[in-house]
Amino acid sequence: MEKLIHLTLRVWRQPGPDRPGRFHDYPSGPVATSLSLLELLDLVNERLTLNGEEPIAFDHDCREGICGACGAMVDGLAHGPKSETTLCQLHLRDLADGGLVVIEPFRALAFPLIKDLVVDRSALDRIMAAGGYVSVDTGGAPEANVIPIPQSDADQALAAASCIGCGACVASCPHASAMLFVGGKVSQLACLPQGQPERARRVLAMVSAADREGFGACGNHRECEAACPKRLSLRHLARMNREYLSAR
């Protein structure tokens, strides 16, 4: 027999950007702990739809923790209480039976709310468009071992590249800063030979794009690192700071 639990979901409902929002309570009834929280929201939405009510809007896509589409605050924590986990990978077994579960959208000046739990995270795309790429012409695919890269550099670049752009760093930061996101990309490309030609321009452009979008400044609170489902290290942020200061 599967274990069943009862939860009360307290979900932020807001019909649109310029309409007032408020919390609504939804009792789950008995539900299997093998369900994910998003699957429970699906169940609640089926009920709401059958009753002719508006279902809860939330973002999701892969539901296997790799795309970065999902994200909300669960009991005040980005992606919920389980560490190194996206919201879609949060299961009811990770929550306390009989408890109240408060679900709130990511909040930041740079993440305007669209509806309920859905916020507009395109500010992150605009930061990426400002310099998070390599545009040098590299010709056809060269022989893999032609460019020697030290293993530790490759490892760090790969770790930095694991960012899925979910925005949990911004959501959890007391200053709503996006610098771990920026730092991940800057650090990744600064570690690799392909990133060298545009190295200085990239970091200056990405930092000023983040500032323009209205993200806060990093105060080294370390909330981003703890909330990141991929556990991006703060060392990437430090490398970005170094890159920035030497680029100026």
Partner: peptide
């Protein structure tokens, strides 16, 4: 600047790492 970056505060916010 930082005070402007989250005009609407969280109703529920927990802390993971910040001192």
């Amino acid at each position: 600047h930082n005070l402007q970056s989250r005009p609407l505060p969280y109703r529920v916010k927990a802390i993971r790492a910040a001192s």
